[in-house]
Structures are given as structure tokens and as C-alpha cells.
Design a protein around this nucleic acid. Structure first.
Length: 599
RNA sequence: GCCGAGAUAGCUCAGGGGUAGAGCACUUCCAUGGUAAGGAAGGGGUCCCGGGUUCAAUUCCCGGUCUCGGCUCCA
């Protein structure tokens, strides 16, 4: 269950919800007018609009959508009443029989099986009583089709019936819907704005990363400017982890398959791993995760309870063979560098450690100004024990309660969601949305009560007895790929000074001022600032424009004036204002701005 | 992986069964400039790849690759 579904549940008593859902009925009716043999799937309201799934005699083409919209507008004008019945009227039965709605029949049977006593039907009838459309539906609906608001069909796409890839694929039509034209237009304009922030577009424009057909899908190549983002993030996390008592380990990208047989990953993960390579009669894999490697670091030497908690961190590079259709810019890739760490602790230490991790998350999010996220407490599903999850029913409950207690103590709001856990334990996932509205897990904080035991990890307790440690897997900054993808959109490409690949652009007024510019650049280099000189033979205006497009925080125009006055003319990307500073003052100012990172 | 759409210059895109187009970028020359595009000239293409149809395919058809919109899956 993703946040979209959660939202939908929350929305169901919202008047907007009834309007959008009613709009989906209008869509269904319109589609039936165009394709009388269409089979209806489901048509819920979603955030900002609605969709409806259909089985159609032919594939929709983009030109179909305006035609369907036209039918919809006519239906809206007709002000057909929405009438609720606990069973379909005779007119509706006729209607239903004629079109043999097999998906609706399947739904009705399942609802009955689930103990739903009474199904409800919504009929659309003309003001004179002529029936036009009927749908089995829980409702609620607006009074008549004239009240379905302002809508626009946005796109069509395939979608499995009832979300299962075992089922046939239906055609889904998406639309947006708002009470007024103005709100609709505002929303559409916002979508356009969001496209400008799309990390795939900005990543290209700002020369942060690229993909190459010669390298492969989902394998991003970080260009120098993107490399700086990576360097800066790693600097930050290493400082934070140092302060929080982590130590850094380094592990190879490869391992014998044996390791994953031992850990249990092979059973649960094989499909999303690159296939094994055979070397010296041994199967080797590229690692899809770092945990088993770290566990081998743990077990390298005997551990005492005095050693715990032990925190092993590594920006580990992993490879996952994700479905080709799932790849999406930097947000879903096949090679990823994870802000990983594993905390080995006793049960008594667990709560403190877990809360420590949550607080680290919150500190990072505050630093980046990340406000729109949801913490999802991902639980197991008892029905999937022994299959998707390790078969330890009692340990699941126990561990989930441990986490629940820690969450309560940390006072962070979470949404509990079943059947989202890792195979080895419950987790807290931080859900965020990309500029175009797709949901992703940005960061994750997991508890593992199973793998350490399987792999024979232990420590000697106070009584000299062997005990299995709990392991917390944590990745507050997720992976470089997804986190930077998110940051690009979050900042719209205009990074704060400490992250900006180029912090200062020096703009000489003419060639005469190049040597002055170079001397200045060296002054900034000494202070470890990232500076570039625009030494092209362009006018100042053009150079400013280029620096603005690259969203560089500070631009220094240097010419005769600056040389004479011994002052710098500074243009700020943020304020677009020009100010004058001595070199010393300016360095002091940007140093201060830099220090905000540490707050 | 599944359903659908797309791929033309470094980038953004137009075009179309018979010498391939624009803007920006790039190179050179002129201009030596003051806060979002100075002027001129020039170079640049396997029209994604492989097959088929055709006198002729970048264009039409089939297959593949990659990207995109979704579904499924997931950091």
C-alpha cells in the first residue's frame, strides 16, 4: 500500500473525493458511448483527479482523449442524476446484461465473499428519468453530472486488473478534476512548473550526470559537477557518523554466492540480482546490498558485550537488476551507492540506538529543509510468513513492538503499513515524491532479527554466554543516486553554497582583466572554494546569463572598477542583487554561509 | 517483466518514399565590453540498430536497443 492509497482512504469523506469519483463515472459513460463493448474495471478518485480502467476493443491513441472529453462534457451538460440503489433497477439490469460486465461481476462475487451484505449501485438517469449508465459502486456521489467540476484527461496507460501481473492488462485513463476552472488551470500550470524541476532535465542542463548506451540502462555516470555533490554528501555523513561513534569499513563489490546462501538473500533476492559469474569453479555475484559483507567484518574477531554497540558504515556500491520498466532517471537505477551502516547491538541497547538513528534522520532532513515526507512503519504480513518473510511469528511481533516503543519515545509521527517489511524484520521507510509526483522511499531504517542468527554472529555477554546481536540497517541519505535526484528537484537545481558544484563564477569584463581574475581565483582556491572563470570572449551580459542558467550562487564581475576600488562586485543568484565587498569581507560572509551546514 | 508512445546535429525540436532543416551550443574573424543573449562567416548527421517492402527507405512494415507515460516491483 503506498501513500496514494492511504490518502485515498483518508479522502473518502471529502466532498472533492465525491466530485472526482463522480467524474470517473462520467468518463466511464463517455467511454461506453464510444466503445459500447468496453468492459469496466474500477474507477476511483485519486489525488487531484481520478482514473478508470477499461478493457477496450482497441488500444487508445492520444487523439482519443479529446474525443472522450467531448462526450464527457455533453454528459455533464445533461445533468444526469446520480441515483443510489441497493440493487440495480430493471432498466439497469438490462443495461448490464447487454454489455456483460465481467469485471464488475467478479468484484461483486468477491465483495459478497468478504461479507459485504449489500452492494450498492449508482445509476445515471436523465432529468426525465431515462437511464443512461449504471455502475456498482460504494459512492458517495454528487447530485448530478453537472456537478463533477472542471476536468481534463491527462494520459492513458496500461494497468493490470486488480494490480496483479497475473491478471490481464486493462487500459487506464487518468484525469485531473477540480471544482473550478481556475483551480484546474493552476494545477496544470503547477505540473508544467514541476517539469522544469525534473532531475532528469536539470541533471543534463547542469551537467551533473549522464547515461550511455555503451554502459547500460540504469547505470548513471557522474560528471565532475555531480561528483562534487557526491563528495560533499560523503564529507557530511562521515563527519556526522564520526560524531555518532560509527567506524568506516570498506568491502569489495564481489562475493562468492556462498555468502548470500548463508545470509538467506539468495532465496529472497535472486531475481533482482545480476546473475553469477563463474571464476575458478566458484560462483561470484556483484553485491546487491552491503549487509552480509559487513557481517563478515563483524565476525572477523570475537566480540564482547563491551564492544557493543558497534556501528559499521560504508558508502557501499551495489548493483541491482531492476526491471527495465522500473528504471527512472536517478530515482531508480541499477548501480547505487548506499549511505549504509549496520549497528550491532544487544536488545537492551536497541531502543537508544534506534532513536539515535531516527534523530540523525531528522537532523539531516532539517539541514536540507526536507519537509514533505511521510515516515512509513513497514510491518510484516502473517499470511506471507515463510514465504516473503522469515518464519518467526513471535519474533516479528516482538521486534515490531520494540520499534513501536522506540517510535513513541522519539515522538515521530509514522503511518503503520502492513506487508512492506524487509524479509528479516520491520523497518521505517521515509517516503517522498519526485517533482512529477512519483512516490519513492528516500531513506530506510530497518531492524534485523533473523540474518545475524543465520550467519552465526554473536557476542559474549556478561555471563560468558554467546548471544546474537540485533542489527539495525540504516541509510538516512538512501543512495547517492536517489538522494541527489531528490535534492536536484528539491532545490530546483539551485543548491545551497556548500553543495553547489561551482560556488563562485568570476566574470572578467574583458580580456584585459583575465590576470586579475586568475589572481582572485587563486585567493578563493586557497580558501577551498570552488571557483570558475568565464574567459570566453563574450559580453558581461552573456556571461551573467550563462552563470544564471547554471544557477551558480555568486558571480563576481571584475574589471577596472574593481581593480581601482579594491572591492568586489558580487551578484547573488538568490537575491539577484549586487553588493560590494572587500575580498576579506566576502570570504568571511561565505564562510559563515558555509557554516550553516553544521547546524 | 507487462501495456502504450517516442528516438533527426552536442542540446531543444521541425520535417518528410527521391541533395537533411531551425534555434542554441561549437570554431574562426570583427568588436574590448559593466549585470540574463554584440555582429559576421564556418564546421558539424550511419535521421538509434538489424532485416523486409520498393527502382529508391531517415520516412512504410517487422524485430531489437534505449528513453518516456503507467502497471508490477523497489533504496
Amino acid at each position: 500500500m503506498n501513500f496514494q492509497d492511504i490518502l485515498e482512504e483518508k479522502m473518502s469523506d471529502d466532498p472533492l473525493h465525491a466530485m472526482r469519483h463522480s467524474c470517473s463515472h462520467v468518463l466511464a459513460q463517455a467511454v461506453l458511448q464510444m466503445f459500447p463493448e468496453a468492459k469496466l474495471g474500477i474507477g476511483p478518485a485519486i489525488e487531484n483527479g481520478f482514473y478508470y480502467d477499461f478493457e477496450l476493443p482497441r488500444t487508445l491513441i492520444p487523439e482519443d482523449l479529446p474525443l472522450i472529453e467531448k462526450h464527457m462534457r455533453k454528459i455533464a451538460q445533461e445533468k444526469q442524476l446520480f441515483k443510489r440503489y441497493s440493487k440495480p433497477t430493471s432498466a439497469s439490469i438490462l443495461f448490464l446484461k447487454k454489455i456483460d460486465q465481467k469485471y464488475k461481476v467478479e468484484l461483486a462475487k468477491d465483495l459478497k465473499k468478504d461479507g459485504e451484505k449489500e452492494l450498492s449501485f449508482y445509476e445515471n438517469v436523465m432529468p426525465d428519468g431515462t437511464p443512461r449508465f449504471v455502475d456498482m459502486c460504494r459512492g458517495p456521489h454528487v447530485e448530478h453530472t453537472g456537478k463533477v467540476g472542471e476536468f481534463k484527461l491527462t494520459h492513458a496507460a496500461g494497468a493490470y486488473w486488480r494490480g496483479s501481473e497475473k491478471n490481464p492488462m486493462l487500459q487506464r485513463i487518468y484525469g485531473v478534476c477540480f471544482p473550478t476552472k481556475k483551480e484546474l488551470d493552476t494545477h496544470l500550470a503547477q505540473l508544467e512548473e514541476a517539469k522544469k524541476r525534473d532531475h532528469r532535465k536539470l541533471g543534463k542542463e547542469l551537467e551533473l550526470f549522464t547515461f550511455s548506451d555503451n554502459v547500460g540502462p540504469g547505470l548513471p555516470l557522474w560528471l565532475p559537477k555531480g561528483g562534487i555533490l557526491i563528495e560533499e554528501l560523503e564529507k557530511l555523513t562521515k563527519e556526522e557518523e564520526f560524531k555518532a561513534g560509527y567506524s568506516q569499513v570498506r568491502t569489495p563489490h564481489l562475493t562468492k554466492g556462498k555468502l548470500y546462501e548463508l545470509s538467506g538473500h539468495l532465496k529472497h533476492y535472486k531475481d533482482s540480482m545480476y546473475p553469477a559469474m563463474k571464476v575458478d569453479d566458484e560462483e561470484y555475484y556483484v553485491k546487491p546490498m552491503n549487509c552480509p559483507h559487513h557481517h563478515m567484518c563483524y565476525s572477523a574477531t570475537p566480540k564482547s558485550y563491551r564492544d557493543l554497540p558497534l556501528r559499521y558504515a560504508e558508502y557501499g556500491t551495489c548493483y541491482r537488476y531492476e526491471d527495465s520498466g522500473a528504471l527512472f532517471g536517478l530515482m531508480r537505477v541499477r548501480s547505487l551507492q548506499m549511505n549504509d551502516a549496520h549497528i550491532y547491538c544487544s536488545e537492551d541497547q536497541f531502543e537508544n540506538e534506534f532513536i539515535g538513528v531516527i534523530n540523525l534522520y531528522l537532523r539531516y532532513f532539517k539541514l536540507f529543509g526536507i519537509e514533505k515526507y511521510v515516515m512509513r512503519f513497514s510491518l510484516h504480513d502473517p499470511a506471507e510468513l515463510g514465504n516473503k518473510y522469515v518464519d518467526e511469528p513471535k519474533l516479528w511481533i516482538k521486534t515490531e513492538n520494540l520499534v513501536r516503543k522506540a517510535i513513541k519515545k522519539a515522538q515521530v509521527p509514522v503511518v503503520e503499513v502492513a506487508n512492506e517489511a524487509a524479509f528479516y524484520g520491520p523497518k521505517i521507510d521515509v517516503q517522498i515524491w519526485s517533482a512529477i509526483g512519483r512516490e519513492f522511499t528516500l531513506a530506510t531504517n530497518q531492524v534485523d532479527f533473523a540474518v545475524p542468527k543465520r550467519m552465526g554472529l554473536y557476542f559474549i555477554d556478561e555471563k560468558g554466554k554467546e548471544q546474537t546481536p540485533l542489527v539495525i540497517h540504516r541509510a538516512p541519505l538512501g543512495t547517492h543516486e536517489r538522494f541527489i535526484g531528490f535534492l536536484i528537484e528539491h532545490f530546483g537545481g539551485a543548491f545551497p553554497l556548500w553543495l553547489a558544484p561551482v560556488q563562485i563564477q568570476i566574470i572578467p569584463v574583458s580580456d584585459k582583466h583575465l590576470s586579475f581574475a586568475r589572481k582572485l581565483r587563486d585567493d578563493f582556491f586557497r580558501e577551498r572554494f570552488r571557483v570558475e572563470i568565464d574567459d570566453t570572449k563574450e559580453g558581461v551580459g552573456k556571461k551573467i546569463r550563462k552563470a544564471e542558467l547554471m544557477k551558480i550562487p555568486y558571480m563576481l564581475v571584475v574589471g577596472d572598477q574593481e581593480a581601482q576600488e579594491k572591492k568586489l562586485t558580487v551578484r547573488s543568484y538568490k537575491t539577484k542583487e549586487q553588493t560590494k565587498h572587500t575580498l576579506e569581507d566576502f570570504i568571511e560572509k561565505i564562510r559563515e554561509e558555509y557554516s550553516l551546514r553544521k547546524s
